[in-house]
């Protein structure tokens, strides 16, 4: 199957800053891609380009459409939750369901109402009367009832409590995701999406610094817990990062042979957040 998104030489210049700098990538169907980067790295700009919300230079193809020219058609196949709480504050639950049901050709009303029935939302409730978590529940119910090929989530759980956050990703995995769908998610709460991602993209200063599937990440990056006497040997292998825990050193290696590292100490798979911190070192300096 062909790629859901293929980008090459994607650039976007804001007045003084280069938000995207010759970015190229491909996203295959049936993947859950985490687009992770520090604030101001260009995540949102990349998503906006994919959604046709902003102009850019370079080549970009999303589901066979050019987001600049065929945005209206593209949005029939793509859903997005851009940031939390962008639902209009005046609208009622029943109104927004009614509206989307009549303007979206791929919306399944029964499905939406089934999702809503599992929440505390009342049909006559207005968005302004809801908590942030409830707004996201409503938005998610709308989005999950749309049979879209691509779902884009930009910081969907920012500011929610842990119950809502867990529930959000759980619903997404259990009731929404299948092999025909693709999800791109950006978030700072890396630990929470770590287990659901199939692909990982790190973006820094408008460039993709890592683009790999999780298996490849697991093979390429290895963390080793090394006793003090072996530390010098470990440092000789040029680790990405080093930190101290309980008198031992933990080294993070990129592309060093597994056998070689096993000789130094106990090896394990690094968490995405550790990997992220190591990769982004010095971003704000």
């Amino acid at each position: 199957m062909s790629a859901v998104i293929s980008a090459s030489g994607l650039s976007k210049q804001y007045k003084t800053t280069l938000a995207l700098d010759q970015v190229s990538f491909q996203i295959e169907p049936g993947r859950i891609v985490g687009l992770i980067g520090p604030n101001g790295a260009g995540k949102t700009t990349a998503l906006k380009a994919i959604l046709g919300l902003t102009d850019f230079s370079g080549e970009l193809n999303v589901l066979g459409f050019d987001p600049r020219k065929q945005r209206d058609k593209l949005m029939g196949e793509v859903c997005f939750i851009a940031d939390v709480a962008v639902l209009p504050r005046w609208i009622r639950v029943c109104e927004v369901v009614d509206f989307v049901a009549h303007v979206h050709p791929r919306f399944d009303r029964a499905k939406c109402e089934a999702f809503l029935a599992r929440t505390k939302l009342q049909p006559n409730q207005r968005v302004r009367q809801m908590s942030k978590g409830m707004i996201v529940q409503l938005h998610l119910a709308l989005v999950m009832a749309i049979d879209a090929k691509l779902l884009i989530l930009d910081e969907p759980t920012l500011g929610l409590d842990i119950l809502y956050r867990k529930q959000f990703y759980q619903n997404l995995l259990e009731d929404y995701f299948d092999e025909n769908k693709t999800i791109i998610v950006t978030t700072h709460q890396v630990e929470e999406v770590e287990h659901i991602l199939s692909d990982l993209m790190f973006i820094r200063d408008g460039r993709i610094v890592l683009d790999a599937d999780m298996d490849a990440v697991g093979e390429r990056y290895i963390e080793v817990m090394v006793n003090a006497d072996q530390a010098a040997a470990a440092r000789a292998l040029k680790p990405l990062d080093e930190r101290q825990v309980f008198g031992k050193s933990i080294f993070l290696f990129d592309g060093v042979g597994r056998a070689q590292l096993e000789a130094l100490g106990e090896i394990r798979r690094p968490s995405i957040s550790d990997l992220f911190v190591a990769t982004m070192k010095g971003t704000y300096a």
Binding site: L51, M75, V78, A82, D83, V86, L87, P88, V103, H104
Partner: peptide, 17 residues
Amino acid sequence: DDRRDRSILFWKSLPIS
């Protein structure tokens, strides 16, 4: 108004020209 309260991002997520 919808640009100010950012709900334009919701309206723009629908297939409406």
